[in-house]
Amino acid sequence: MADPERGRQVLAELRHLGVRTSIDDYGTGYSSLAYLRHLPADELKLDRSLTADVGDDPRAAAIVEHTAALAHALGLRLVAEGVEDDATGETLRRLGCDIAQGYAIARPMPVADFLRWLEGPRTPGRPRAVATGASGSPAPHP
């Protein structure tokens, strides 16, 4: 982000090659509405600090709901990070999140286990999404 113009160029080149990109940890740190306007990304990853208590905090729910509307209006998917239980996942789905990521879906695991998990059966009510652990490695279904 030290050179935003170069960043836009690299992301545009990656997109041209078919690589999908995300703006990670949206809502914290260096993320900004200006990025949504200028960076050619495919999705936003909403930081867990905004999703963790979304079922109990009406202000958090309002932020998530309107961020989802903004993301969709810009043609972006919204990924909710930090989904630790099914109730939170359902609340986030209802508020407009497209993808859930967190321990409620899967825990970190080796690639071979991930491939088996990916091919395995899904239980009703579980978000159909792939999660990654803090290390960036794929995560299994609990």
Rank of each mutant, 00 (worst) to 15 (best):
L76P: 01
T28C: 06
D86K: 00
P124Y: 02
P127Y: 03
L46Q: 06
S135N: 12
P138G: 14
R20I: 05
L39S: 04
A131G: 15
Q9M: 09
E81H: 01
A106N: 02
A104F: 07
T67N: 10
R122V: 08
A41C: 12
D98I: 06
P121D: 11
D113L: 09
L118G: 06
A12L: 12
G29D: 02
R93T: 15
L78I: 15
L11D: 05
V111P: 00
I23H: 00
D86F: 00
P108W: 06
E84D: 10
Q9K: 10
D85H: 11
G120P: 06
G18Y: 02
E90N: 07
Q9A: 14
P110Q: 04
A12H: 04
P108Y: 08
L36M: 06
P110C: 05
P138T: 14
D47N: 13
T21G: 00
Y35Q: 13
G82Q: 01
G125V: 15
R8W: 08
V130I: 08
L44V: 10
G75V: 13
D113P: 08
L92R: 10
P121R: 09
A41Y: 04
P110G: 11
G29N: 03
L14I: 09
G125S: 08
S32L: 05
P138L: 14
P58K: 10
A134N: 09
A139Y: 09
A62T: 14
H16K: 13
Y30H: 12
E43L: 07
T21Q: 00
V19F: 10
G55N: 13
A69N: 03
A34G: 07
I105S: 13
T123R: 13
T88F: 08
D53Q: 12
H16E: 13
L36D: 02
V130A: 14
P140A: 14
L76M: 14
A73Y: 01
L70E: 11
A134G: 10
G136L: 11
R128H: 07
K45S: 10
S32Y: 01
A73L: 08
E90K: 05
L33I: 04
V54S: 08
G55V: 07
L95Y: 02
L118Q: 11
M1F: 02
A68S: 05
A12K: 05
R48A: 13
A41K: 04
L33S: 02
D56F: 02
P124R: 04
P138I: 11
S22P: 01
A129G: 03
W117G: 15
P138K: 12
Y30A: 11
H38I: 11
A52K: 15
P138C: 12
R107W: 03
T123N: 08
T91E: 08
Y26N: 13
L50M: 12
R122G: 02
G120F: 03
P142I: 14
I99L: 10
A134S: 12
R59S: 10
Y35L: 10
R6P: 01
L33A: 02
I63Q: 03
S22R: 01
V111Q: 07
A100V: 11
V83F: 07
T88I: 14
P40A: 00
P140T: 12
A69D: 04
V79S: 03
P110E: 09
Y35F: 05
T123Q: 14
A106W: 01
